[in-house]
Design a binder for these strands. Sequence first.
DNA 1: CCGGATCCGTTTCGATACTG
DNA 2: CAGTATCGAAACGGATCCGG
Lengths: 135, 135
Amino acid sequence: MRSDCPLNYGLEIFGDKWTLLIIRDLMFFGKRYYNEFLSSNEGISTTVLADRLALLEKQKIIKKQKDPEHKQKIVYSLTQKGIDLLPIIINIGMWSSTYSKKVSDKMECYFADIRKNFEKGIAALKAELSATHLE
Amino acid sequence: MRSDCPLNYGLEIFGDKWTLLIIRDLMFFGKRYYNEFLSSNEGISTTVLADRLALLEKQKIIKKQKDPEHKQKIVYSLTQKGIDLLPIIINIGMWSSTYSKKVSDKMECYFADIRKNFEKGIAALKAELSATHLE
DNA sequence: CCGGATCCGTTTCGATACTG
DNA sequence: CAGTATCGAAACGGATCCGG
């Protein structure tokens, strides 16, 4: 049996609880700063967070940039490769809601959170665009 | 930020390397016996294998039955809930082949393995059906 | 023989405290 | 604020043993 099957490449990401949580936070909850990841309810520790951020950056799933406005801050964001994980994350959510009543009951609250976050993102984008326009 | 989001339910499965490998072996490589899982190239140890099989059974993703032919053997197989993980596994494979040349080059060999295994499964099914028909 | 359970040395993880 | 250093806890791998 061959060991180099396609699943294995994804295993470094999907075989780890914390990387998935970081991706979820970036994708749905608009978290971008080290501190924001730390304060997620699952309670990731600083050691593990630093380790996983480095791993995800090495894999080019996220990228690390200096915040142009607050020089001391560092902004993390998804690359295209990271964004392309969306269908997988969605599928996991769908599977979960099919098989866990607890999850399916909470779906609406969850969507509300995501929606709210997207609105926030769109507002930020608008502000950014109008600032560019004024220059 | 709510912690009980849909991803979390799937995390016990997708947050662990070994459970994913067992599911892959069941889904694509036709493995069914304890020994067959042990001999996968990734080298799972007996302790971890027993632990994960128990976890997956508890989660009703796999089921455990006595082999009707060889009484001392135990057959593991996917439940419907387990089979429903297929879209996710496929998506992971697609994502991997998009972003890893090493993976995409090997895709055809991988498909050949799966195809061969399905043929084996279909042959077994035919044999089973004709035996039933003869009774 | 097959599917595990137990024991044990080693590796990895993670919580807390601390630093540039 | 974004991480390292340290150190105890947990997980892992391998060998061995055991019940059916």
